[in-house]
Each structure stands twice: as structure tokens, then as C-alpha cells.
């Protein structure tokens, strides 16, 4: 067994069986587990997926949203137990893998058009 196989095998013990992988430009609700003392609650962070990075257990998405007219970005490693669930609420139309240009956009222009292609079988409400 080569080195990468060993690493993959070790990682597979700690990864989730299934994760929802959104596409770039999708609007998602990320349910994060937050532990306050002994209590645990779920907080939802919703925004546009502007980047995906890494692979395996380190796979992460960057989600951007606007809070009080200020852009907020958070990176979520999707295999982390702290990410309870990812829900896709909208598909956006994009032609890039990284949407860094959204950072320079203000007002209406930061919205993405709804995706038209390949949506025949998508089940998004």
C-alpha cells in the first residue's frame, strides 16, 4: 500500500459517510453546531458558495453573505462534526470556479442569475 492510500484509509475513519457538495454559486444554509457551556444549539449561516478547496477530510467551502451591509465570509470544512447539515436553497449561474469578483460588487450587481443549465432533474424547492 502506498503512502497516499494509507492516508486515505486513516482519513476515511473520520470523514462523514455522505456530505452534500454544493456547486459554486449556489445559495446554501449551513447548519452549524454551537456549544455554549453544556448546551448545544444550531445556528444557520446562509450565503453564496464562492469557493471550494482541498479534498478528502479537509474539503471546505467558503460561504459569503452580507450582514448589515458588510460582507462576511466563513469557511466550513464539511467533514467537521460542527457542520450539522448543508441545505442548497438556490442554484446560481456562474462561469468561474472562484467567485472572488463578488467581493468588489455592490448592491444589485452582487446577485447571481438563476442557473438554467442541467437543472432538469435538480430537486430544489
Amino acid at each position: 500500500m502506498n503512502k497516499q492510500d494509507i492516508i486515505n484509509q486513516v482519513e476515511s475513519k473520520y470523514t462523514k459517510d455522505e456530505i452534500v457538495v454544493p456547486a459554486i454559486g449556489d445559495t446554501v444554509d449551513v447548519h452549524c453546531r454551537i456549544i455554549e457551556g453544556s448546551k448545544e444549539r444550531v445556528q444557520i449561516f446562509s450565503g453564496v458558495v464562492i469557493a471550494k478547496k482541498s479534498s478528502g477530510i479537509s474539503f471546505a467551502i467558503t460561504v459569503r453573505r452580507i450582514v448589515a451591509n458588510e460582507g462576511v465570509e466563513r469557511t466550513f470544512p464539511l467533514h467537521s462534526p460542527k457542520v450539522a447539515k448543508v441545505e442548497i436553497t438556490r442554484h446560481g449561474h456562474t462561469r468561474r470556479a472562484k467567485l472572488n469578483y463578488l467581493r468588489d460588487r455592490v448592491g444589485k450587481s452582487r446577485r447571481l442569475k438563476d442557473r438554467r443549465r442541467g437543472l432538469k432533474h435538480a430537486s430544489v424547492k
Binding site: 503512502k3 492516508i7 473520520y14 478528502g56 477530510i57 470544512p77 467537521s80 462534526p81 460542527k82
Partner: peptide, 19 residues
């Protein structure tokens, strides 16, 4: 040494590990 990766512990904390 095989290499490095990360794992998440029960508390959800990220732990860098060497295999």
C-alpha cells in the same frame, strides 16, 4: 513517516496529525 493529515475529535476540534 507516512505523511500528515487532520482529524476531528469528538468535540469537533481540528487536530493536525502525523501518520
Amino acid at each position: 513517516k507516512v505523511g500528515m493529515t487532520r482529524i476531528f475529535d469528538e468535540a469537533g476540534k481540528n487536530v493536525p496529525v502525523t501518520i
